[in-house]
């Protein structure tokens, strides 16, 4: 699977390299779009020193970790949100006649390497936050772990949304509100949100495990909502459970397609 993924991604990268001007343009614009979220945080902190009890550097830490996980997912698998377009245009069939897993083919179709710019931008924000925060070095191991489980959670959300499109061919925006909304949510400390919302994204849809719960551990902070300490370490578990659900949903969606046609 990894080999196939790399082959497909490399082919698209080579194709993109044939148009360097377009590549540079997309790179710059991707950065500009992503920079908006960062600018919003900076403007907020030009007016206050703390938001929901968190400092600017702490918020940038949360923004950076969620941002890297999200932009990596977006770079690697974002074409999954075009499943409904593929179904409508009838192009899904062409993925099904190849001797390779359909999910991989769809995820890499039109891979846009210029999206790497947004990953780097999020990484820069995280780098700045880490340098400014002076965190306990014994807790830093959590940073790569949370980014990795964040990627798995986002990828699972993408896949769930894509599987949903097999049933709701005419409503792709429902699933993109779901994926982009989660990314937006994770940029800020959950202490700004209402208690009910936070409960929902902890116990129903495990968005709290992208960066909030593990981030509290890395920052050495207690949860303002008072959840027990072991929750900080559940990120990988939540990611695996969600990935399993997503895989099942995807199989079910594809089976539904193959048994209903279009």
């Amino acid at each position: 699977m990894v080999r196939t993924y790399l082959l497909l991604a490399w082919t698209w990268t080579r194709a993109a390299a044939a148009y360097p001007a377009s590549f540079a343009l997309l790179l710059a614009l991707g950065c500009a779009t992503a920079a908006l979220d960062l600018a919003a945080i900076l403007i907020i902190f030009a007016n206050t020193t703390s938001l929901g009890g968190f400092t600017r550097e702490e918020v940038l830490f949360l923004y950076g970790t969620a941002g890297i996980a999200f932009t990596l997912t977006d770079l690697l698998f974002s074409n999954l949100d075009r499943v409904s377009a593929h179904i409508r245009d009838g192009t899904l069939d062409t993925f099904l006649i190849r001797p390779v897993n359909a999910w991989i083919q769809i995820a890499t179709d039109r891979f846009v390497p210029a999206r790497i710019g947004r990953v780097l931008q999020a990484a820069a924000a995280l780098g700045y936050a880490l340098a400014a925060l002076d965190l306990d070095p014994r807790r830093l191991w959590m940073v790569p772990v949370m980014i990795l489980s964040g990627v798995v959670i986002f990828t699972s959300l993408w896949t769930l949304a894509a599987a949903l499109q097999f049933a709701l061919v005419d409503a792709p925006e429902v699933s993109s509100a779901f994926t982009y909304g989660s990314a937006q949510l994770a940029q800020y400390p959950f202490s700004v949100y209402g208690r009910e919302l936070v409960r929902g994204v902890t116990y129903v849809l495990p968005l709290a495990f992208i960066n909030w719960q593990p981030g509290l551990y890395a920052l050495g902070r207690d949860d303002p909502f008072g959840t027990p300490g072991f929750m900080r370490f559940l990120g990988p578990v939540a990611a695996l459970v969600l990935a399993l659900l997503a895989a099942l949903a995807w199989r079910q969606g594809l089976r539904r397609y193959r048994s209903t046609g279009s």
Binding site: T4, L7, T11, W12, A15, R98, P99
Partner: peptide, 16 residues
């Protein structure tokens, strides 16, 4: 969006 020869090369890789 791929040139024909790249499409063929992809097929070679996919079909091993």
């Amino acid at each position: 969006d791929l040139p024909l020869k790249d499409s063929f090369e992809l097929i070679r890789l996919l079909y091993k």
